[in-house]
Amino acid sequence: MRKNLHLLRGVLAAGVLTVATLPAAMAASITTVLSFDDLADGVLPAGYGGLDWSTAGWTAFSIPAAPYSAHSGTGRVTTGFMADDASSAIRFAQMTTFDGAFFAGQGGAVLSFELYLGGQKVHSSATLDPSAAPSFLASGYAGLVDMVQVKSVNHGEFVMDDFTFTQAVPEPHSYALLLAGLLAVGVATRRQQSR
Protein backbone atom coordinates (compact mmCIF):
# COMPACT_ATOMS: atom_id res chain seq x y z
CA MET A 1 0.00 0.00 0.00
CA ARG A 2 2.81 2.36 0.92
CA LYS A 3 4.62 1.59 -2.36
CA ASN A 4 1.48 2.31 -4.35
CA LEU A 5 1.01 5.64 -2.57
CA HIS A 6 4.63 6.62 -3.31
CA LEU A 7 4.17 5.58 -6.95
CA LEU A 8 0.98 7.60 -7.23
CA ARG A 9 2.72 10.70 -5.81
CA GLY A 10 5.56 10.35 -8.33
CA VAL A 11 3.21 9.93 -11.26
CA LEU A 12 1.07 12.88 -10.17
CA ALA A 13 4.10 15.12 -9.65
CA ALA A 14 5.47 14.34 -13.12
CA GLY A 15 2.03 14.77 -14.70
CA VAL A 16 1.35 18.07 -12.92
CA LEU A 17 4.77 19.39 -13.94
CA THR A 18 4.10 18.48 -17.56
CA VAL A 19 0.60 19.96 -17.66
CA ALA A 20 1.64 23.12 -15.77
CA THR A 21 4.45 23.93 -18.21
CA LEU A 22 2.52 23.24 -21.42
CA PRO A 23 0.49 26.49 -21.62
CA ALA A 24 3.64 28.60 -21.42
CA ALA A 25 5.34 26.45 -24.04
CA MET A 26 2.36 26.73 -26.36
CA ALA A 27 2.04 30.51 -26.09
CA ALA A 28 3.20 31.26 -29.65
CA SER A 29 0.57 32.69 -31.95
CA ILE A 30 0.20 33.77 -35.55
CA THR A 31 -1.82 36.84 -36.48
CA THR A 32 -3.34 36.66 -39.95
CA VAL A 33 -4.66 39.64 -41.88
CA LEU A 34 -6.71 38.76 -44.96
CA SER A 35 -6.41 41.74 -47.30
CA PHE A 36 -8.23 40.09 -50.24
CA ASP A 37 -5.69 41.70 -52.60
CA ASP A 38 -4.67 38.30 -54.00
CA LEU A 39 -8.19 37.45 -55.23
CA ALA A 40 -9.70 37.83 -58.67
CA ASP A 41 -13.02 39.69 -58.78
CA GLY A 42 -15.91 37.31 -58.19
CA VAL A 43 -17.22 34.83 -55.64
CA LEU A 44 -14.87 34.36 -52.69
CA PRO A 45 -13.40 30.81 -52.68
CA ALA A 46 -15.02 28.74 -49.88
CA GLY A 47 -11.66 27.92 -48.21
CA TYR A 48 -9.95 31.30 -48.69
CA GLY A 49 -7.43 32.03 -45.94
CA GLY A 50 -8.10 28.64 -44.36
CA LEU A 51 -11.64 29.73 -43.39
CA ASP A 52 -15.05 28.45 -44.41
CA TRP A 53 -16.86 31.21 -46.32
CA SER A 54 -19.25 28.77 -48.03
CA THR A 55 -22.48 29.90 -46.34
CA ALA A 56 -21.68 33.58 -46.65
CA GLY A 57 -22.01 34.42 -50.34
CA TRP A 58 -19.14 36.89 -50.12
CA THR A 59 -17.89 38.50 -53.35
CA ALA A 60 -14.40 39.94 -53.88
CA PHE A 61 -13.72 42.98 -56.01
CA SER A 62 -10.87 45.41 -56.63
CA ILE A 63 -12.36 48.10 -58.90
CA PRO A 64 -12.49 51.53 -57.20
CA ALA A 65 -16.06 52.45 -56.26
CA ALA A 66 -16.96 55.19 -53.78
CA PRO A 67 -17.90 54.92 -50.92
CA TYR A 68 -16.71 51.28 -50.91
CA SER A 69 -13.06 52.05 -50.19
CA ALA A 70 -10.36 49.48 -49.45
CA HIS A 71 -8.32 49.97 -46.30
CA SER A 72 -5.13 48.55 -47.84
CA GLY A 73 -4.38 47.63 -51.45
CA THR A 74 -7.44 47.41 -53.68
CA GLY A 75 -9.15 44.14 -52.69
CA ARG A 76 -12.18 43.93 -50.43
CA VAL A 77 -15.27 41.77 -50.06
CA THR A 78 -18.99 42.37 -49.78
CA THR A 79 -22.11 40.29 -49.18
CA GLY A 80 -25.15 39.98 -51.37
CA PHE A 81 -27.51 42.92 -51.30
CA MET A 82 -30.04 42.61 -48.47
CA ALA A 83 -28.71 39.17 -47.48
CA ASP A 84 -29.69 37.91 -44.04
CA ASP A 85 -27.26 37.95 -41.13
CA ALA A 86 -27.04 34.15 -40.96
CA SER A 87 -25.66 34.03 -44.50
CA SER A 88 -22.68 36.17 -43.46
CA ALA A 89 -21.16 33.49 -41.18
CA ILE A 90 -17.41 32.90 -41.44
CA ARG A 91 -16.14 29.69 -39.82
CA PHE A 92 -12.62 29.05 -38.54
CA ALA A 93 -10.96 25.63 -38.97
CA GLN A 94 -9.71 25.77 -35.37
CA MET A 95 -10.53 27.85 -32.31
CA THR A 96 -9.23 31.35 -32.88
CA THR A 97 -9.13 34.81 -31.34
CA PHE A 98 -10.92 37.15 -33.75
CA ASP A 99 -9.58 40.71 -33.71
CA GLY A 100 -11.85 42.54 -36.18
CA ALA A 101 -11.94 44.04 -39.68
CA PHE A 102 -12.09 47.34 -41.56
CA PHE A 103 -15.38 48.46 -43.12
CA ALA A 104 -16.42 51.22 -45.53
CA GLY A 105 -19.71 51.89 -47.30
CA GLN A 106 -23.07 53.59 -47.17
CA GLY A 107 -24.03 55.32 -43.94
CA GLY A 108 -26.89 53.54 -42.25
CA ALA A 109 -25.59 50.02 -42.95
CA VAL A 110 -24.73 49.77 -39.22
CA LEU A 111 -22.43 46.78 -38.65
CA SER A 112 -21.53 44.52 -35.74
CA PHE A 113 -20.05 41.08 -35.09
CA GLU A 114 -21.56 38.16 -33.25
CA LEU A 115 -18.97 35.64 -32.06
CA TYR A 116 -19.69 31.94 -31.51
CA LEU A 117 -17.99 28.94 -29.96
CA GLY A 118 -19.49 25.48 -30.31
CA GLY A 119 -22.75 26.90 -31.64
CA GLN A 120 -23.23 29.23 -28.64
CA LYS A 121 -23.02 33.01 -28.96
CA VAL A 122 -20.24 34.22 -26.65
CA HIS A 123 -20.05 37.92 -27.51
CA SER A 124 -21.55 40.77 -29.54
CA SER A 125 -19.29 43.62 -30.61
CA ALA A 126 -19.97 47.33 -30.57
CA THR A 127 -21.59 48.77 -33.72
CA LEU A 128 -20.07 50.77 -36.57
CA ASP A 129 -21.89 53.00 -39.06
CA PRO A 130 -19.63 52.89 -42.14
CA SER A 131 -18.58 55.79 -44.35
CA ALA A 132 -16.24 56.19 -47.33
CA ALA A 133 -13.27 56.29 -44.93
CA PRO A 134 -12.48 52.71 -43.82
CA SER A 135 -12.87 52.23 -40.06
CA PHE A 136 -11.83 49.30 -37.87
CA LEU A 137 -14.55 47.42 -36.03
CA ALA A 138 -12.92 45.50 -33.18
CA SER A 139 -14.51 42.30 -31.95
CA GLY A 140 -13.99 43.45 -28.35
CA TYR A 141 -13.50 39.84 -27.23
CA ALA A 142 -10.21 38.14 -26.30
CA GLY A 143 -11.59 34.61 -25.91
CA LEU A 144 -11.61 31.79 -28.44
CA VAL A 145 -14.25 31.51 -31.16
CA ASP A 146 -14.94 29.19 -34.08
CA MET A 147 -17.40 31.37 -36.03
CA VAL A 148 -18.00 35.06 -36.70
CA GLN A 149 -21.24 36.44 -38.06
CA VAL A 150 -21.17 39.88 -39.69
CA LYS A 151 -24.46 41.62 -38.93
CA SER A 152 -25.74 44.65 -40.81
CA VAL A 153 -28.90 46.66 -41.23
CA ASN A 154 -28.21 46.64 -44.99
CA HIS A 155 -26.07 43.83 -46.35
CA GLY A 156 -24.53 44.71 -49.68
CA GLU A 157 -24.09 48.35 -48.64
CA PHE A 158 -20.61 47.86 -47.14
CA VAL A 159 -17.23 46.33 -47.92
CA MET A 160 -14.92 44.50 -45.55
CA ASP A 161 -11.10 44.57 -45.68
CA ASP A 162 -8.15 43.41 -43.56
CA PHE A 163 -10.05 40.68 -41.70
CA THR A 164 -7.76 39.94 -38.73
CA PHE A 165 -7.52 36.91 -36.44
CA THR A 166 -4.93 35.24 -34.22
CA GLN A 167 -4.39 31.49 -33.92
CA ALA A 168 -2.41 29.78 -31.17
CA VAL A 169 0.32 27.57 -32.65
CA PRO A 170 2.13 24.93 -30.56
CA GLU A 171 5.88 25.40 -30.68
CA PRO A 172 8.04 22.32 -31.42
CA HIS A 173 9.57 22.31 -27.94
CA SER A 174 6.10 21.95 -26.39
CA TYR A 175 5.86 18.48 -27.92
CA ALA A 176 9.33 17.64 -26.57
CA LEU A 177 8.26 18.83 -23.11
CA LEU A 178 5.14 16.69 -23.23
CA LEU A 179 7.17 13.65 -24.33
CA ALA A 180 9.71 14.24 -21.53
CA GLY A 181 6.91 14.39 -18.96
CA LEU A 182 5.35 11.20 -20.23
CA LEU A 183 8.75 9.46 -20.19
CA ALA A 184 9.29 10.59 -16.59
CA VAL A 185 5.94 9.10 -15.63
CA GLY A 186 6.86 5.86 -17.41
CA VAL A 187 10.28 5.64 -15.72
CA ALA A 188 8.77 6.29 -12.28
CA THR A 189 6.15 3.61 -12.86
CA ARG A 190 8.71 1.09 -14.11
CA ARG A 191 11.02 1.69 -11.12
CA GLN A 192 8.20 1.17 -8.69
CA GLN A 193 7.10 -2.05 -10.39
CA SER A 194 10.64 -3.47 -10.40
CA ARG A 195 10.97 -2.89 -6.63
Score class of each variant (00 low, 15 high):
residue 87 S to D: 13
residue 89 A to C: 04
residue 107 G to I: 00
residue 86 A to S: 12
residue 92 F to W: 06
residue 94 Q to G: 01
residue 86 A to M: 12
residue 94 Q to E: 14
residue 84 D to Y: 10
residue 91 R to A: 14
residue 94 Q to K: 13
residue 98 F to S: 11
residue 82 M to T: 07
residue 100 G to E: 11
residue 107 G to S: 11
residue 100 G to L: 11
residue 107 G to N: 08
residue 104 A to R: 14
residue 103 F to T: 02
residue 89 A to M: 10
residue 107 G to C: 11
residue 106 Q to R: 12
residue 107 G to T: 13
residue 74 T to C: 05
residue 101 A to S: 00
residue 76 R to I: 05
residue 103 F to Y: 10
residue 89 A to R: 11
residue 80 G to H: 05
residue 77 V to L: 06
residue 77 V to M: 09
residue 94 Q to T: 05
residue 103 F to E: 04
residue 99 D to G: 13
residue 79 T to C: 01
residue 80 G to K: 06
residue 72 S to K: 10
residue 83 A to F: 00
residue 81 F to D: 12
residue 92 F to N: 00
residue 75 G to V: 03
residue 106 Q to W: 13
residue 90 I to Y: 03
residue 92 F to H: 11
residue 99 D to E: 14
residue 89 A to L: 11
residue 82 M to K: 05
residue 95 M to E: 14
residue 104 A to G: 05
residue 100 G to R: 12
residue 73 G to N: 02
residue 106 Q to M: 00
residue 95 M to S: 13
residue 90 I to W: 10
residue 98 F to N: 08
residue 81 F to S: 15
residue 81 F to I: 04
residue 77 V to S: 06
residue 75 G to P: 08
residue 102 F to S: 03
residue 99 D to S: 04
residue 80 G to I: 09
residue 84 D to W: 03
residue 84 D to H: 12
residue 92 F to Q: 14
residue 93 A to H: 14
residue 91 R to C: 08
residue 100 G to Y: 01
residue 94 Q to Y: 08
residue 78 T to G: 07
residue 105 G to I: 11
residue 86 A to C: 10
residue 97 T to E: 13
residue 95 M to C: 01
residue 87 S to T: 14
residue 96 T to D: 07
residue 76 R to S: 01
residue 74 T to Y: 13
residue 86 A to K: 15
residue 80 G to C: 09
residue 72 S to N: 07
residue 103 F to M: 05
residue 101 A to T: 06
residue 88 S to C: 11
residue 90 I to K: 12
residue 73 G to L: 06
residue 83 A to V: 09
residue 104 A to I: 06
residue 84 D to Q: 15
residue 76 R to E: 03
residue 107 G to E: 09
residue 74 T to L: 15
residue 98 F to R: 13
residue 98 F to L: 15
residue 76 R to Y: 07
residue 96 T to Y: 03
residue 78 T to F: 01
residue 72 S to M: 12
residue 81 F to R: 10
residue 83 A to T: 09
residue 87 S to L: 08
residue 96 T to H: 06
residue 93 A to I: 01
residue 84 D to C: 10
residue 75 G to W: 03
residue 97 T to I: 12
residue 87 S to F: 02
residue 76 R to T: 02
residue 95 M to G: 14
residue 93 A to D: 14
residue 95 M to Y: 13
residue 101 A to G: 05
residue 88 S to F: 01
residue 89 A to E: 13
residue 74 T to G: 15
